[in-house]
Design a protein around this nucleic acid. Structure first.
Lengths: 192, 192
DNA sequence: GTCTATAAGGGGATAGAC
DNA sequence: GTCTATCCCCTTATAGAC
């Protein structure tokens, strides 16, 4: 942290993308401001906009990165055949992604913007990319793939709702079910 | 439509809530403007705000109504025992709700706002209300209830992404899986 | 590469007339 | 019950200095 002043462009881009992922994940596309992202990245608002051209372009880049991270995680899980069924391995890979809150939450928001002329197509493409991956590369049937995505959407929702921070016993029961009994990834999250 | 001028307060509230449900469903809380809602309801922006006090209060009311509609639909489905298993009946009741696009989509957005101090609690309460209903009143096990909600979240996502309007064959396959093979409710939607 | 200053527009909320 | 007018803050984006 706090290197400040004069990073190479590529590194600066990465640090802005990381900050934007968190802020977009928490507030959504419309709810987030470029100033909040700038503050999180430790730079000025104007520089955020200048670096990516527009807030929209930044969001699209964040979203594309997030899809790429999921795809990479799933491909690793598919290759790393440890004897367990592939959907188990995929599920665990997905739970591992919870550690970087921004990824899953930014995607949740992306998928809610299908009506937007610019962002909608990115969301559809991203969602179908993941569907095809688990169907074609992991070899799940359409039905299995659909169930798998459904469980993923539930995890996203539980995460977005902060249900894992609730003290309600029903919330705990639900979160436990959603993650297949392995609460460790949720527990590891800093409450925020 | 177009009765205009001097509705009784109660009716006016309803017409604003109906318009707001559609607009919030399409654009989300932050993305929607009170002016868009006003236009959809055929009245002035100032009147929308005045009637509900604030945009936030209006959204909360829309969200609470949506949860209420789901709960009512599920209770009907539970009572109307036609011999089919209860989760079948619940699934069909949920698909019927697609006809009123605003309900499911407003809730999708509600559930994405868990970080918001005012809206977050409403979302958690609403989600748990539905969970308890399908578990306690329909008698599903925690695992069954969780799977049921997961399928619901996938339907919401597919709807928000407008995947049912896509010409991609994979999109069609996925939508078909998501709705258990009964595409009729998606087909009945006006493309928007 | 990064900042400060600021333009330009949008949006929620209020006041007051009808 | 409903509108018009308007205030003022917030936000994105641009210009130009360093």
């Amino acid at each position: 942290m706090e290197t400040r002043h004069r990073l190479p462009a590529a590194e600066r881009r990465e640090s802005i993308l990381a900050a934007a992922s968190v802020v977009f994940g928490e507030r959504g596309y419309a709810g987030a401001t470029t100033d909040q992202i700038a503050t999180a990245a430790g730079i000025s608002q104007a520089y955020v906009v200048r670096t990516f051209g527009s807030k929209e372009a930044l969001f699209v880049e964040v979203a594309r990165r997030a899809v790429g991270r999921i795809a990479a995680a799933f491909r690793s899980a598919i290759e790393a055949d440890d004897g367990r069924p592939v959907d188990r391995r995929l599920g665990e890979a997905y739970l591992d992604l919870i550690a970087d809150r921004g990824i899953l939450l930014s995607l949740l928001h992306l998928f809610s913007l299908g009506s937007d002329p610019a962002i909608g197509p990115v969301g559809r493409e991203g969602f179908l990319t993941v569907y095809r991956l688990v169907r074609d590369e992991a070899g799940l049937s359409p039905e299995e793939a659909s169930h798998f995505l459904a469980e993923g959407m539930l995890i996203n929702t539980v995460l977005a709702l902060h249900l894992h921070e609730s003290e309600d016993p029903d919330a705990l029961e639900l979160v436990t079910q959603a993650c297949g009994g392995d609460l460790s990834r949720f527990r590891a999250l800093a409450a925020g």
